[in-house]
């Protein structure tokens, strides 16, 4: 739950990045992810210019690089698992650095690692710099079905609460088993989950009552005016342009050419 506690969308900062319209940040994030993932499987160096984006956003927003990295690494296991097969199946040597022969498999593995880091860090930065309610307001304005946005908001609201209940149940069980933490046997686990579920159902009933007591009629209404300003527009334009250039021009190649490396 720490992940949620740390970044639960109450990104309360007031940096220029925080103040951008959530829609602008969403658009740029998507552009970024698409640009990064659109490279060929062996591309590593061409991905490097894209590192600028998370670095710049993290710096400008004052979000600590450590928290971005920690969150980003949380995504690593599955990717590494699948990516690690590449070196075994793709053994064509494609680069020689000095005496070292690098196979396509290792290059593509490296590429997977880099693009994973980039894509995940962009999403992480989006939530770290955007209040969740405003993000949802942006999603509503961007024509997502209202039921779905409302669902996101309710889910986000009650995750912490139910997670707390779950934790307390497990702790109570642990205490009864003399301090040593046995893994839950299925016979204990299933009723525990069942109980958690019944409590969740009761909670839903009570919340529904509280809503009806305040005249809920099936429609959730919110006042969250968003103003798309010129700086939002510029933000999209600037980063979009940068991504475009880096996607279609070989910036690292040009740089190394300038530096005279052949």
């Amino acid at each position: 739950m720490e992940a949620l506690a740390g970044a639960s969308g109450d990104a309360l900062g007031s940096s220029p990045v925080h103040r951008l319209d959530p829609r602008a940040k969403c658009v740029v994030t998507v552009l970024f992810v698409v640009a990064v993932t659109s490279f060929g499987r062996y591309d590593v160096s061409r991905l490097m210019p894209f590192v600028l984006y998370p670095v710049a956003i993290a710096t400008l927003s004052g979000v600590s690089a450590g928290s971005v990295a920690a969150r980003t690494l949380a995504a690593a296991p599955f990717i590494l698992l699948v990516g690690l097969f590449n070196p075994f199946f793709d053994r064509q040597v494609i680069v020689r650095i000095g005496g070292l022969a690098v196979t396509g498999g290792w290059m593509s593995f490296l590429s997977i690692a880099v693009r994973s880091f980039l894509a995940v860090s962009a999403a992480v930065l989006l939530v770290l710099t955007t209040r969740f309610d405003l993000l949802c307001a942006g999603l509503r304005k961007m024509c997502l079905p209202r039921v779905f946005v409302t669902q996101l908001e309710f889910l986000h609201r009650y995750i912490g609460l139910l997670a707390g209940e779950a934790q307390r149940m497990v702790r109570a069980h642990d205490l009864r088993s003399n301090g040593n933490r046995p893994k839950l046997a299925l016979v204990v686990y299933a009723p525990m989950i069942g109980l958690l579920l019944l409590r969740a159902l009761d909670r839903a009933t009570r919340v529904h009552r509280a809503m009806k007591a305040r005249l809920f009629d099936g429609e959730i209404r919110v006042l969250r005016p968003l103003a798309f300003s010129r700086s939002d527009f510029l933000f999209i334009l600037a980063w979009g342009g940068y991504f475009l250039v880096c996607r279609f021009a070989d910036v690292p190649g040009l740089l190394s050419g300038l530096a005279g490396v052949r």
Binding site: I159, E165, L196, L201, H208
Partner: peptide, 23 residues
């Protein structure tokens, strides 16, 4: 209209349930 809180809370339930492991 009871579906709104129900879906929200059950989504949170799935989350919470995923935090409990069994052998």
């Amino acid at each position: 209209d009871s579906r709104v809180p129900l879906m929200g809370v059950l989504g949170a339930f799935v989350f919470a349930a995923q935090m409990i492991n069994f052998s």
